[in-house]
Structures are given as C-alpha cells and as structure tokens.
Design a protein around this nucleic acid. Structure first.
Lengths: 277, 277
DNA sequence: CGCTACGTTGATCGCACTCAAGTATAGTGG
DNA sequence: CCACTATACTTGAGTGCGATCAACGTAGCG
C-alpha cells in the first residue's frame, strides 16, 4: 500500500559557512553565539541595494542595465525586531524582498494562538504576488531580527514579469518549491509526533541558516522555545521538554534563544523514525 | 497581540449548480446521490480535448489557433478509480491536467499513514512544473474516480510559458493561491480541534464541488470517512464519530461515501469557533 | 446471497495540553 | 559594577482529547 517514501530535498550541509568561533572566548557557550546584528539604520538605505537585488534569485538572470532601472522601482524600509511589516486582513498590493535580517510569516487563530509558517532570509520574497480582486493579506509579516526590506507594487512587479519571462519562471519555481515544502509540513502535522516534528524543524533550520562551529552546527538566528512551538504546532512547555530531552541525549546544545546541533545523525533518525523498536 | 483575523476566500455558494434531484425517486437518500461517472474509455480520447484545453484556466487567454497547436503537445490517458497516476519517488518530468473525474494528491508516511493533500477537479494541474535537477515526485497522484488526464512534458510546458507570459502569470497565480490554501491547512492542523477541521473541510468541499439539492448542498464526489480522516489528520473512527455527531445536530445528512450539508451556518460556526461557551 | 469494504460504537490508553510554581539569563538603571 | 526586573526556560502534577483496539452493523457488488 505504501510505495517509495522519501524526501526530495538535498540533504547536504556542504554549503554552510564555516565560521570557527574562537574556543577560548566561549568554550562553554555561556552567552548567545548567535550574531545579533546591531542595526545602524543607515545599513539599510545604502546603495548596496543594487548588489542586493542582484543576489535575489529571480533577478540574477537579468542584465545589469535592467537591474539598474529596476532599482528605481523599489523602495526600502527598515524594521525593528518584533515590528509588523504588514498585518493579516490589510489590503494587499505590495511585494517585499528581504534585504537583510529575518522575517517571520505567521497566521493568527481565534484562540489567540499564532502559527509560524516560515522564516525568511535575505533574498526571499513575501507579500502579494497576485492582483486578483482586492485581496487581503492572509498572513502577517513581522520582523524577527532587525531587517531591511525592499518593496515594489504588485502591479509593477507583474508588468516586470511579463517583460522578462525567465524571471517569471524563476518566481514560479520558487513558489512551487514553497508549496512542496508546506505540503510536507502538512504531512508532518498529520502523521508525526511532536518529537519528530521538532527534530525535523531543527534539521531544516540548520540546513537553511546553519553555521559550522566547533561544537556542531549553530542555527544562526535567535530561536526561542516558543518559536519552535509555533513552528511545530505544539506548546512552549512541550517544546522545552523535548529540547531538554535532546540535550540529555547529546543531540543538541542549547541556551536562551540559541541552539547548536551536536548530533545530526541522531536527529535524522528521530525525524524519519518508523518507530522500529 | 492578535490583529485582524479573517479568511480571504470568497464565501459564496452562488456558483453552485442547482440540480434538483427528483424527490420521488430518492426522498430518503437510500442510495448514493453522488453521480458515479460510468467510464466509457472512449469518453476520454474523444477530440473534445480542444474544448477541455480551453476550459483550463491558464490557457483560456490563448488565441484559438494556438490552442490547436498546443493540443498536439498533449497526450491523454485514462485511469480507473484507485489507480495511481504516478508514485512519490518516481522521476518527475511530466505535467498533468485533469480533463474529467477527480484526482487525489497524497503523501505517504513511514508509519503507513497516508495524508490527503488535495482533491483535484477538471481543469486543475498537477505533477511537475519545475525541471530543476532530476527531481522526484514528492507526492503520489491517484485516480479517485474514473479520470481522464492530459499530459505534457515539463520541458515543453516551460517553453510554452516562456512564449506566452500571460499564461505563465496565470499559472503563478494558481500556484500562489494553492500555497495560501495549504498554509491555511497548516494553521488549522496546528491550532484547531478535529471537529473544527472536519467542519472546515466539509465547507471547502461544498464550495468546490457542491451541488444544490432539496435537502441542502450535496458534495458531488464519493467521500468516505477515511478520506475525511486523511484530509484532516485524524483517524477513520474519529471522523466517523464527528460526522455522527453532526448528523444528530442536523448539520449534515450522510450515507456510505456521500455527504449532504444541511446546516451550513452551523458548520461555519463550528469551523470558526473561538469556543466562547 | 454471501462476501467485502465501509461505517458505527464502546472501552481503554497515552501523548500532549493545561495550570502552576520555580530557576536562569540578559538586559536596565542606579 | 551590581542589584533589579523582565523575559525566557524548566519541571511537576493532573487532565482530556483523540488514538488504539475490538466487535459488530450495513450497504453494495459480483
């Protein structure tokens, strides 16, 4: 009844930056190893916008001259940690691109519970792609760290896509991939235990934001138990218990808002587990 | 802390076909009111392919002449209920469009549990949009009823999108919308009770496949308790209990593989419920 | 007309939520 | 620099929702 099962996503961590944190300075990780980008508000408005736009996956195909023209279409904004970029229910007519920092994408429930759908890093887009009807944002975007975002009117962006079909195809690819990833989350929420889900999320974050340190792979972002809980559909307390357990088993090393993965293979076992005891 | 909350999707049922089932014939719904399309295998290969292609949302913009050329690029296949169209893990290089019938999109878990991600109806696409790397299907597509599908090589489809930017944009719109819908499912799985999720799924199916009958809105498809369970991340038994309960409360009328919604407002209350007792 | 798949209902169990109290960390201001 | 406070994290005890196991009805098909 059940055929081939397997994750499609590449599983390597070879792309990770190797930033050997000096052992002498923090051998025991007493303080956050996560780099807290101090924001000079200037850092955002500088005209390295061009270089940022070039790094955005879907513009990398464009000729330089075009990127220069394109640059004028964008405006940039800075946000402090926790600040909302837009709220669910607001009228949606703007597309954003993360220039620096991290952005949380979340949905609210009547119960007051928030669900964290995704954490975006530089180069990722969010906001409104579509101009259909007078759409509203279904989710809320919130600055997770200090961020700088570039924005463009959806309308203008679509004109641009019409002009450059290859760009449109790249945007489609990214969106299709996100759909796949979200469907995998649905599967996990439907079929896996909390323990498995948390292991899986840690691995995914490590792949996305991991940085090799002497201890293992540091997830380079402030990550609270509550963030983890909101990503895996559980509670802060349960997330905390699971992380404590992982720590006892030597799979992770964690402190206040930071996690280092010290046993990737072990976590992978748990995340995949068919519970063959 | 929690701002505007609201569903974005249109909530009307005005588009539903009104097919008054003769009261005399089945006043008590002893047999399935769902139309079981008997498949003459010929029904698929007829050259109403053209008219089908025109109905596909993303080709409707194209000039007739183009559709005719396009027609040659497609091949058609028929499948019996339960037959797989492709399996997860297989190499992915084909894009499909449902011509008639319904197709299940599902993911398998190690535990043996299957998760039903979506049910596609005529005009919906599925399969591989992207040619990145030698991708594998992350999900399985299975004929739910007798179906006819049109298929095209992903490569050819992409060439086509390059040629007709408006088509590419429409495909992007559809994909973006599916992403939104899937994210809403993630939210429900994370934050809502099984009862709420089932109510929500029934309403969504009614909106998608509903047909107005004398009793209420008939969900025009074979729909077992197990299907419902796989769509809401629960078990057959629990799904059955909830439907029984809904039936006692007069919200639905149901039999073997069919459901009529008799109390839409009540279901909406439950699906939205902030549990204000 | 019997077989098979679907559906129902009951009893029991366990994972994860809830409520609650306590500890540790990192910023803050004196 | 250190007390002070806010926020994050931890851990325990009790509970309940929904899964599991099991047995039995029922529709539809060959």
């Amino acid at each position: 009844m059940s055929p081939n099962i397997g994750t499609v996503w590449s599983d390597s961590i070879e792309h990770l930056t190797e930033k050997q944190t000096s052992v002498t300075a923090m051998s025991q990780h007493r303080k956050t190893p996560v780099q807290v980008e101090t924001v000079e508000p200037a850092a955002c408005s500088v005209d390295l916008r061009l270089s940022i736009l070039q790094k955005v996956p879907f513009f990398s195909d464009l000729p330089d001259a075009e990127i220069r023209t394109l640059n004028d279409q964008f405006r940039e904004y800075g946000f402090q940690p926790g600040e909302p970029i837009y709220f669910s229910g607001e009228k949606a007519a703007t597309l954003y691109v993360v220039a620096s920092g991290q952005v949380k994408l979340l949905r609210h429930s009547m119960s007051g519970q928030d669900v964290l759908l995704d954490i975006l890093k530089p180069g990722d887009y969010f906001g409104s792609l579509t101009t259909l009807a007078d759409e509203l944002y279904p989710d809320t975007a919130q600055a997770h760290t200090a961020v700088c975002v570039l924005s463009i009117q959806t309308e203008a962006f679509r004109t641009l896509l019409q002009q450059y079909p290859p760009v449109a195809l790249t945007v489609l690819d990214i969106t299709a991939r996100r759909l796949q990833e979200t469907q995998e989350i649905v599967r996990r929420l439907s079929a896996d235990s909390v323990e498995q889900r948390i292991a899986a999320v840690l691995l995914k974050l490590a792949q996305k934001l991991g940085e090799i340190s002497d201890e293992g792979i540091l997830i380079q972002m402030p990550l609270s138990r509550d963030d983890l809980a909101q990503m895996t559909g559980t509670t802060t307390e349960t997330a905390s218990r699971i992380i404590s357990q992982f720590q006892k088993e030597g799979l992770v090393h964690s402190g206040r808002k930071w996690i280092v993965i010290t046993g990737r293979p072990g976590l992978k076992m748990i995340a995949a587990a068919a519970d063959t005891v």
